[in-house]
Design a protein around this nucleic acid. Sequence first.
RNA 1: GGUCCCUUCGUCUAUCGGUUAGGACGAGAGAUUUUCAUUCUCUAAAGAGGAGUUCGACUCUCCUAGGGACUACCA
Length: 519
Amino acid sequence: MTARPVRVRFAPSPTGPLHIGGVRTALYNYFFARQHGGQLIFRIEDTDSTRFVPGAEEYIIEAFRWLGIEFDEGVSFGGDKGPYRQSERREIYKRYVDRLLAEGKAYIAFDTPEQLNAQREAVANFQYDATTRMTMTNSLTLSPEEVERRIAEGQQYVVRFKIEPGEEVHIDDLIRGDVVINSSVLDDKVLYKSADQLPTYHLANIVDDHLMEISHVIRGEEWLPSAPLHVLLYRAFGWVDTMPRFAHLPLLLKPTGNGKLSKRDGDKLGFPVFPLEWHAPDGTVSSGYRESGYLPEAVVNFLALLGWNPGDDTELMSMDELIAKFDLAKCSKAGAKFDYVKGWWFNREYLLAAPAARLAPAFLSILAAQGIDTTADRAAAVIEMMKTKNVEYVDAQSGQTRKRSVSFVADLWPLCDFCFIAPTAFDREDKFVKKNWKEDSAAQLTEVVHRLEALTDFSADAQKAAVDPWCEASGAKPWNAWRVALVGTGKGPDMYELSAFLGKDETLRRLRFAIDTLG
RNA sequence: GGUCCCUUCGUCUAUCGGUUAGGACGAGAGAUUUUCAUUCUCUAAAGAGGAGUUCGACUCUCCUAGGGACUACCA
């Protein structure tokens, strides 16, 4: 193979928020580009003017910024092979369409969508191809004068690619190997629409990839069926020497049931399918990974392993490691069911590894929503104390309440309210209170209060040094009653740790209150 | 319907002709524990089916079944 500089592209259509499957495709392109010291180009494929959604382009750019996927060229990133927005490349496409027309490799067709639909209803498996095109209304069946007259008259037309039947078209796919399709099963694809003076995806794609010197096309498997058409287009233009290599990635499938992952699955099972929260023009809001409390590294790591693996048992990898290890040859061929529960696990791993100070801002805003006003340091301290706990959740599939380890900053709040709110009453029927507040509890805690009062250093270690010897000597085990006093029930961190966090005044206040109230 | 792609534990996957088929998530059990956890240990769990090729197939070929994608003047 020719050792061309690696240039890959991610080319979304700005029709809405970026789907998580698209994020993975972009990610693989990014790994590939970085690993080979190449460039990643960001192209906007907005050739369907009717599906344009305002804000989508900005959303996509913001999503990649959050995820840490960096582009070298393209819309909003500069570069000398622009414009990178297809709607701004009309003249370029027109030139190439005319060339195909002049060389007899494409033709003009006047059949209206209505006529075509009627045809499809009338004839089973109707296809606009070599077997039918001579019966249709096009420049192959009409005289040149008639064609010209119709165009002059302003009649709308499309340009169709004239596919020669009976030819074996090979796609040398980097993931799937040799894929062969007979050109007879292909239809004469529309390449250009006179209505909006724009090409369709297929033409624009080939022209742009060629002009932008793309070396590898790494895209979703949904494009595999049209890959032969693309190969034929490269041939028609005489660009086979520089035709990019193809790699068709397996699809992301629904976690349950069959089919491609869709937004509805996320809504139903409670996980995001978009990187960022999306506010649609119609007012509906779709959740995003960022707003749901995922760390970008976790999303990247999780996604990277859905359809690819490093060949060993390594699962936790940074962006740099992923770039170093990524290999198209190690991509799997079969679609991957989207295991969002494993996504929780990835997030947990990164949450545990993240310094509490980084997590504090997010926690602070959750606390603020609960009416708690505190400092970043205190928020960070609570995160440290509570992040190895677990939280209850309702499994969307079974409807059962289960427990799982803290995976998100938002999981913390229901576990740590007592850090900020002192018990004002005690529930004697609470199982933990009932079991652990005994007749001698008040007396034991009085001794604890006595010992803590003397401390100037209120660190967990200092408390331990002041209380443990007495416990050992007397056989007293005051900790659960202590927990009742500080927390109100059977949850929370180690008592010395919690007391140190609350501080001497608050700790003693809560202990005395419990002694007075529960007796 | 047609074309193409795919098929190892429930899920993501390792294995690139010779393994007790490995790991992770999830599940279960136990140990540890000042509550709940964490942590640690262990267990269950897979080559879709059938023909070949081969001394030997999860691995190669074919068939069947199942799943998926595509089949627009959408990408």
